[in-house]
Design a protein around this nucleic acid. Sequence first.
DNA 1: ATCCAGTGTTAGCTCAGCCTAACATGATAT
DNA 2: ATATCATGTTAGGCTGAGCTAACACTGGAT
Lengths: 143, 143
Amino acid sequence: MTEITPNQENYLKTIYLEVEEKGYAKMSDVAALLSVRKSSVNAALNILADKKLINYTPYAKITLTEIGLKKAREIIKRFETMNNFFLHILKLSREEAIANSCKIEHVMSEALFDRISEFYEFTEEFCKQNPDYKKQLDSLLVK
Amino acid sequence: MTEITPNQENYLKTIYLEVEEKGYAKMSDVAALLSVRKSSVNAALNILADKKLINYTPYAKITLTEIGLKKAREIIKRFETMNNFFLHILKLSREEAIANSCKIEHVMSEALFDRISEFYEFTEEFCKQNPDYKKQLDSLLVK
DNA sequence: ATCCAGTGTTAGCTCAGCCTAACATGATAT
DNA sequence: ATATCATGTTAGGCTGAGCTAACACTGGAT
């Protein structure tokens, strides 16, 4: 069980999303996305490589290992779970929802993840069955 | 607007709660509560004192300044807001709820705080008015 | 009054994470 | 083929946060 810091999780996630979107990940793009210097990214990537989460050889494209992939997907799952809740139930703005999810995804427990997921599903369903509940919720939170 | 790290928030909160409970705060107790060494607490307290959040003179009892008090109360408010939600709506165990709240209290935004508060109030009220909703929720989350 | 245990402080180390500045590499355009 | 520019790497420094080990203060028991 490779331990990983919140920050390292964030690098991993960013690389994963870059690879998803463009087919590869470049250091300088990661630096731009996270608003840090290339040298900082370099240091971080060396740590992730040490932990066998990414393949990172000098001057080559960055790819994720199997474990890295798995871990990245977990992080993104946590992100999406919180984000859905914030966006569609609490009705936070896109930016607010994302900002909070990006922080919380790194500190939440498995149990919280499970409960939020269940609660989200339940609430969506309940809204469908009970338009009155939905209406009350909407009028409460949006103004 | 004095900037403060999540960790420093945690020290501040711990001191506040100690003072509340026992009338004063001692370094060694703070160290024990946070499971860190006294020297680490010392370093942290010097930073908080620099930032005018606590009064901290060698070998004396620790007290909070006015700004420190205000800040500590904000943190605790955030904690309690999340904790109530986790405990009474998501039905997390005490330990799980506390563990998550203690992390999230340091990273959540003002807007999230507001929305969670409103949502919590709304849901509690809705449960009272609609026992059926409450029953469904309870059976969903407790097992 | 003195000594000891508990409590508080200091020095000096490690690590993660950021920075700047300088250097190296590689791809491209002439 | 070489000069140039974007890109990647290395060196060296800073801060926050932790540690250990040694030292200093204080108050209570003898």
